[in-house]
Design a protein around this nucleic acid. Structure first.
Lengths: 209, 209
DNA sequence: GTCTATAGTCGGATAGAC
DNA sequence: GTCTATCCGACTATAGAC
């Protein structure tokens, strides 16, 4: 079946964000990618901004749904990291995180775009938060670190790394390797349970005084 | 003393990146911010792209120099985190990280912009790498994690958090709080020295098999 | 080194035929 | 719902006066 014009424009908006960046999107460039007439952007969405906003949410909804089962299957921090690496590789190829990153960059200065990108980002954050909460339950990490905040930091860092990869692939590779090593350390910390709890409690007391 | 036109354009390029985003920069908008004629962009820099590239390096050079002494004074992970928070607050107000983030977003699709933004980013990374190496020397972190990679991951995450803050300030606040808690955990880990080393070595062996 | 003026292109958005 | 045609503003870049 052939996608209708509305769907074609949503997909084309994401594709154009990915290949041309936020500075290169226009009603004309999106319509050309979709293979439809330029005026249809305004007929269906009213303005380019509104098309971009809907496209961001559309893309995130689609991708998050595709990963939901894999998030649900994660039972350890190490498995979550593995899923993160796989997700990075797959989404990089598909270009969905790249499109989201361009929307976020655009949302910095466009008040109409900011809320829509937040909604798309929150879909990822919600999934991540739920998984982190499950995996970290009963560990020192859950005791001392706000899991919702950690999910937000992770998602933001993910976007930052994606952007970094776009301008320095080698540097980003080294960054990802270091993060994997770091996660191994944290997993080891998690295994140490009670001893770590005692030490960290002492540290927190000192830090607060 | 009044800045010459060249300097005014470099500063105005950063200011315009910050307030209008990469999608809103043009020879006209930059020249208007600088209070000079639009044609001077091409006279002094040849093209808007080349002005942006030079402005990015210019801004980073300036800001990194302003922080060099404070980086050098850091002697612990906790102090480095404190400097990170201060740096975030100060640069957010000045808008320099925001400008760099917009350049990175633009560099994804503009091959002329990518190398220049990498250069600017590398100034920060170099400073961070040196400080991390000094602070982590002799700790388990330095033993198990590539410090250069960690510096790159940190810088990329910093940019991601800055962008996140631009579309969801509340969410970013929670993310920063969680990272502070996480750093306290890592600092505690660092204090535990030999015990952690043994545990982590065992874990790494298991992970590789 | 700085200005005006302008060529030529691309952009958002709309009117109206089909 | 889709098209052509069009208005008009903004853009890059250059030519040429000062």
């Amino acid at each position: 079946m052939v996608a209708d014009t509305r769907s074609k424009l949503l997909d084309a908006a994401l594709e154009t964000l990915r290949t041309q960046g936020i500075a290169g999107v226009s009603a004309r460039s999106i319509a050309a990618t979709a293979g439809v007439n330029q005026a249809l952007v305004f007929y269906h969405f009213g303005s380019v901004d509104q098309l971009l906003a809907q496209a961001g949410l559309h893309g995130s909804t689609q991708r998050v749904a595709a990963y939901r089962e894999r998030f649900a299957a994660v039972t350890s921090l190490r498995e979550l990291l593995e899923l993160g690496r796989a997700l990075h590789a797959e989404e990089r190829k598909a270009g969905n995180v790249a499109a989201l990153a361009q929307l976020i960059a655009g949302g910095q200065t466009d008040p109409k775009l900011a809320p829509a990108t937040t909604d798309g980002l929150n879909l990822w954050i919600g999934e991540l938060e739920q998984t982190l909460g499950r995996v970290l339950a009963g560990t020192p990490l859950a005791e001392f670190v706000d899991v919702a905040g950690l999910a937000r930091a992770t998602a933001a860092a993910f976007v930052g790394l994606e952007l970094y990869e776009g301008v320095d692939a080698d540097g980003a590779g080294r960054a990802f390797d270091a993060l994997e090593q770091l996660t191994t350390l944290v997993a080891a910390l998690d295994d140490m349970g009670p001893l770590v709890r005692r030490t960290v409690r002492g540290r927190l007391r000192r830090a607060q005084s």
